[in-house]
Amino acid sequence: MRPFTVLTAVAAPLLRDNIDTDAIIPSREMTSVSKTGLADGLFAGWRYLGSATGGRDPDPGFVLNQAAYAGTQILLAGTNFGCGSSREHAAWALAEYGIRAIVAPSFNPIFYGNCIRNGIVPAVLAADRIARLASAVAPDPQRLRITIDLSAQAIVGPDGGTDAFPIAEEAREMLLGGLDAIDLTLKRSDDIARFIARDRTVRNWVYPTA
């Protein structure tokens, strides 16, 4: 996974609340047993005209289709972003499209974890601060960029104004190092085996006997 340190990029506003995983990638866009080839289906219902019937003409009203927001890598979103299905395709599609950070007042917990495991920074920030960032970039999004500094846990607006955002230590380290969680945990195999051996003496009924 690509490590995330500091990113300065175009940020696009999608300031609706409760943007669910069906909206991020409709189920009908997930047609292969694969983690890739999903960027084209990102926000398909909003991005394309007549997408329900396979339409692929960009809807000029959708923010990511506008030239001013070309190359967007940061999304500014509403509360409870990523609610709905646990489909990791939502995170895969966002990452493949090029989104590297999402700033929202809150995230669905499963989606939040999926972001961390796919190199996307989920930054929690109060709604009024997010609205202010969105207006700050609006006059010229290509020039008025936002910086996300993960080590400092800071979001810097185009005017230099800085907000701190919280992120758990473990999640931060994984994103900073681009680490694979399975490798990290497999280093603890002996501890896990010891724990299970002890657990079997307390909860032997948990373990199938076949």
């Binding site: 983690k35 646990s86 489909r87 990791e88 995170a91 917990p109 499963i110 974890g113 999926n114 495991r117 796919n118 758990a168 473990e170 999640a171 969680a181 399975i182 990290l184 945990t185 497999l186 603890r188 195999s189 896990i192 299970i196």
Partner: peptide
């Protein structure tokens, strides 16, 4: 609880998950 696919791989491979305490 519900997880993503990458976490499912982690659980399958290691019998554990790294979980943030809710």
């Amino acid at each position: 609880w519900g997880i993503g696919s990458t976490e499912a791989e982690h659980a399958l491979a290691t019998r554990t998950l790294r979980v943030l305490k809710p």
